[in-house]
């Protein structure tokens, strides 16, 4: 295997591996939304407050997944 083929291979492999990081964000978002929905079920009056905080939490967790995505996009299209 020559260098050029190895580079291409490593590029795609790296892009795929980078996306493994999104597993954590997925679990985090699932947990926070699950908790928020339970809380809304118990106390429907507090829905608006819970929803706001939930979206903020989801945004923070999602940011981590987006970092992975950006890394893999850079591997695919820039390097």
């Amino acid at each position: 295997m020559d260098i050029a083929t190895a580079t291409v291979l490593a590029k795609y492999l790296g892009a795929g591996l980078a996306m493994i990081g999104t597993i954590g964000a997925g679990i985090g978002i699932g947990l926070s939304v699950g908790g928020a929905v339970q809380a809304m079920g118990r106390n429907p009056d507090a829905t608006s407050t819970i929803q706001t905080n939930m979206i903020l939490g989801v945004a923070f967790a999602e940011a981590v997944a987006i970092y992975c995505l950006v890394v893999s996009l850079i591997l695919l299209f820039v390097i």
Binding site: A59, E62, A63, I66, L69, V70, L73
Partner: peptide, 10 residues
Amino acid sequence: TFRLFGNIFA
């Protein structure tokens, strides 16, 4: 920066 860029670019 990356949250907005990553989401919309993707």
